[in-house]
Design a protein around this nucleic acid. Structure first.
Lengths: 126, 126
DNA sequence: CTGCATCCTTAATGATACTG
DNA sequence: CAGTATCATTAAGGATGCAG
């Protein structure tokens, strides 16, 4: 037969799964998914939670994630506008690994800072 | 006393843990850590495994990861040179979440492609 | 409030050449 | 082989203004 499942492999430069990995292995995506872990949230709320993200980047990232089926966008026809974002079933499968990365960064930052310090302190070449 | 543990929070723009998250939530870091999951590997081997990565980017990313204590670099004084990279205990704690991201990309790429297709197919605004 | 469009700045990546 | 240095290119990000 010729309808075998393609072998997706992120290590292959041209494999679509690599592009997909590039999108989820990203700081903004991680923080946005984490911020939606507790339930749906509005654009402005996410923007406040993910401190420092610009409106342009947030809008673009949310759009990409919506396009990839990671979250849904619900716009209510009100004035002023209200838009809510919510993780899909697919997006919820990203919570665990991405939350783990966020926790890793927080829980191991002191080790990292120490390692960085030791690295910068060592002689250039003896 | 004033030696309380600081409250690290990746959501804060100026928190060092955010910079740390930015480094690990990155496609190159993910692929490199995955490629080192089975044990130490040489520069050239990693470069072959992570197809498409340039020597410059690989060298730079490896250096950053070494500096942060995620992996060790061992240069053997031979000719031609031989250098081996290996995950540290700290780096091994990254295997699980980063491998999970790689697997997610491969296992859900069809769902993602379908979602993308549906998104692009929908009417612009009615 | 949301979010797109535009312009501008900076960071990331690529290609190539070269050295221990 | 494993880098580093340089140059050229591209992508990401930030600031602002405006529209629905």
């Amino acid at each position: 037969m010729s309808n075998a499942t393609p072998v997706w492999n992120v290590m292959l430069a041209s494999c679509p799964s690599r592009t997909s990995l590039a999108k989820i292995a990203n700081k903004w995506t991680a923080m946005i998914v984490i911020s939606l872990s507790d339930g749906p949230a509005r654009f402005g709320t996410i923007r406040q939670t993910v401190e420092g993200i610009s409106g342009k980047v947030l809008a673009g990232t949310l759009r990409d994630l919506e396009r990839d089926g990671v979250l849904t966008r619900t716009a209510y026809d009100e004035m002023p506008p209200r838009v809510e974002y919510e993780l899909t079933a697919l997006g919820r499968t990203l919570r665990e690994p991405l939350t783990a990365l966020g926790l890793w960064a927080e829980q191991h930052i002191e080790e990292v800072l120490d390692a960085r310090d030791a690295f910068d302190r060592r002689p250039a070449s003896v």
